[in-house]
Design a binder for these strands. Structure first.
Lengths: 225, 225
DNA sequence: CTACATATATAGCGCTCCCTATGCAATACG
DNA sequence: CGTATTGCATAGGGAGCGCTATATATGTAG
């Protein structure tokens, strides 16, 4: 008895979720067929329907498994950077300045989900929950940052988190079209302004940390392939 | 001779473009078939392929015809608002606070195009050109605004326009998921911060102008149906 | 060992979609 | 007025997709 049924089921589910996340982020949701996800997971489409009922079900399950938002992870890990101003730079550097990394691919999927949410209430609900949690965490980190810097942000923590997330999201979209029009200095200026630093001080050119690439999913086992 | 061939051809082209823009914005690009566009235009799919060669060709033509960016129009027309601070509010009110208007539907299409641009160089090129022009115009308006207010924005005009556009884009995406998390006051605070106003002054609650809905396309004749 | 339950594979149905090949009527032109 | 050309309609091919129904093999339990 190499594997109990429950073990195999759990492994299949994890594989499907990982493959789905991977492919959805890479080629777009509509660009990936159920069979493609199944094959990437070493299974067939029957397994997908046995587990999730539909492609939409798989999508929602992927979204649900994707607990740690890019932003949340970032704010948690960016704290290792020493200088406070460098932290702002690190925020942008890890969100928007890392082409072909996991976070870049994830944010592309996130944008697709946001757009889909405008026409699909189910997706909107799922995103809303995720978003509320992420905003809460980053609000906390941001207000901590503000107090260490003795600055007065332009809004209370929750609203500030919304503004910061919005600015980063918009800059990232812009960067996809015109990479040259968005650089680290510009992002830091925008962030600093929202944090209530005025006039915007000189940007230190010191190199800042680059957060390690975070795994796409926290499910187990990690992808093979 | 009711109509010359050239006239009929031009009308067909205009109808297809208008119907394409309308439906793409409404249901999403992948959610609309070529036949659906043709039928909405009172033609058949043969006309689409005779004029544009492919669905992608139609999409690029729509994008090309769509000369006036939502942002550009807005900055040009928002000048009619009296108080300078009210102008900032009007910017948001007309971009992100008008559900079910043309600008709302258009921005949804714009986001879809941005996302598509990440995987389709043709779309990326088309968007880049449009974007450069829009940024140029809004940069001009923004610096004019800054000088009348005697404030020092956080970046030079072109970069400032990028930041403003990014913030508005991000806020709008956020609003689609959680309408309550983004209000006019918050948007104005963010905009004011980027414009270099600190501390952010009290927001006047006076009502501000709402720019008339702009037609989806400037092509002639205007849509019937 | 046998009978059942479960997890996944397999096969294929029905639908939609993009696109092409061809037909046809209206216009353009000598 | 007759022929050529143009603009678009019509019909259908070919492919891909989501999903279902059923088969199969493997673990489970008495």
């Amino acid at each position: 008895m190499a594997q109990t049924q429950g073990e195999r089921k759990a492994e299949t589910r994890a594989r499907l979720l990982a493959a789905g996340a991977d492919l959805f982020a890479d080629r777009g949701i509509d660009g990936v067929s159920v069979d493609a996800v199944a094959e990437a997971a070493g299974r067939t489409s029957g397994a997908v329907y046995a587990h999730f009922g539909s492609k939409q079900g798989l999508l929602l399950a992927v979204l649900d498994t994707w607990k740690r938002s890019v932003l949340t992870v970032l704010f948690a890990e960016v704290a290792i950077t020493d200088s406070p101003l460098g932290q702002l730079a690190a925020v942008w550097d890890n969100i928007g300045n890392n082409p072909d990394t996991d976070s870049d691919r994830w944010s592309l999927l996130e944008h697709e989900l946001w757009q889909r949410a405008a026409r699909d209430p189910e997706v909107a609900d799922a995103l809303r929950a995720r978003n509320a949690e992420a905003r809460g965490r980053s609000a906390h980190e941001l207000s901590r940052w503000a107090s260490t810097m003795s600055v007065q942000p332009v809004a209370d923590p929750d609203d500030l988190a919304t503004l910061v997330k919005a600015l980063l999201t918009g800059l990232e979209m812009q960067r996809r079209i015109e990479p040259d029009s968005v650089n680290c200095d510009l992002a830091v200026r925008g962030l600093a302004a929202l944090m209530g630093m005025s006039p915007v001080p000189e940007i230190p050119i010191e190199p800042h940390h680059r957060v390690n690439a975070t795994p796409l999913l926290t499910t187990h086992p990690p992808r093979e392939r």
